[in-house]
Amino acid sequence: MPSNGRPMLDDLIASLVDQVYDVIVVANTWERDGSPCLLESAGLPVCVVEDEREGRNISRWWNLGLDTVARHAGWLGDTEWDVLVVNDDVVCPPGLVETLSGRMRATTAVCAYPDQAGGQREILHTQAGPVPLSQRIAGYAFLLRGEAGMRADESLVWWAGDDDIDWSARQQGGALLVPGIPVEHRAPDVQTNASPVLSAQTARDMDTFVAKWGVRPW
């Protein structure tokens, strides 16, 4: 979970206490008083990875977290592990991780995400390309099959990196849309809309995505 320390981070972690065994916070442009390494959470160990490079790049933050999780899995001797990637403004429903993991590992998928549009059927996408918005990846809450080695494209700095992961996952086994477990996304696009720099970056990222895939994601 990348975070600058917004208060909503605490609610996110609290919603995951009974669902995960480890939390990785990628601290960036930290806004809380005190070091992010002092972050505490009731009932869960929290590992803080500080991004010391300049500039906001969510794909880089995701990769820092994914690399850290892979190292932890190696230390534990795990050959299979799941990684939930979430924004810090999300509240996860009970059973989210177990459901996404169980459904993903019952298929060839290397990525799974909750249906946020109220759909009733599970869909396994195996071809890169646009899908209806109701079936698009929930870029603020998705699960990866850790041992598959999925990583974000850091040339996509702020926008469409989730779609790139989704489309890449389809080529490596599939991306699975799972109904019945919507997450609460509390502040969509707030940081983007508040920053002219980030807003301008979204257009550049879309151009990068089209150059890579030949078509817009939506």
Rank of each mutant, 00 (worst) to 15 (best):
M1P: 07
S3N: 03
S3E: 07
G5Q: 04
G5A: 07
L9T: 12
L9P: 03
D10N: 10
D11A: 15
L12G: 01
Q19P: 00
Q19K: 03
Q19H: 03
D22P: 00
V23K: 01
I24E: 02
V25D: 00
V25T: 00
V26M: 02
A27P: 00
A27K: 00
N28R: 02
E31P: 00
R32G: 03
D33R: 12
D33K: 11
C37W: 13
E40A: 14
E40C: 05
S41C: 14
A42W: 13
P45C: 10
C47T: 15
C47M: 15
V49Y: 12
V49T: 09
V49E: 15
E52V: 15
R53Q: 15
R56I: 15
N57R: 05
I58E: 01
S59T: 14
S59A: 15
R60E: 07
R60V: 04
R60D: 05
W61G: 00
W61N: 06
W62I: 07
W62L: 11
G65R: 00
L66S: 02
V69C: 10
V69E: 03
A73V: 04
W75N: 10
G77W: 15
G77C: 01
G77R: 12
E80F: 13
E80S: 08
V83Y: 06
D88T: 07
D88W: 06
D89H: 09
V90W: 01
V90M: 11
P93A: 07
P94E: 09
G95Y: 09
V97S: 03
E98L: 06
E98N: 04
L100H: 05
S101T: 12
S101I: 02
S101G: 12
G102V: 05
G102A: 08
A106Q: 07
T108E: 15
A109E: 10
C111N: 05
Y113H: 13
G118N: 06
E122V: 08
I123Q: 02
T126D: 11
Q127E: 14
Q127W: 05
G129K: 12
L133S: 11
S134I: 06
Q135K: 11
I137W: 05
I137V: 15
A138Q: 08
A138N: 09
G139W: 00
Y140N: 09
Y140L: 07
Y140P: 01
A141H: 09
R145F: 03
G146P: 09
G146M: 10
A148L: 08
M150K: 02
M150S: 06
R151S: 05
A152W: 09
E154P: 03
L156W: 07
L156K: 07
L156D: 01
V157H: 05
W158M: 00
W158C: 02
W159C: 09
I165C: 14
I165W: 02
R170W: 01
Q172P: 08
Q172F: 10
Q172N: 14
G174F: 05
L176G: 02
P179M: 04
P182A: 13
V183G: 01
A187M: 09
D189A: 15
D189N: 14
V190A: 09
V190N: 01
Q191A: 13
N193G: 12
N193V: 14
A194Y: 04
S199W: 10
S199I: 03
R204N: 04
F209T: 12
A211D: 09
K212S: 03
K212P: 00
W213H: 08
G214H: 06
V215N: 00
W218G: 12
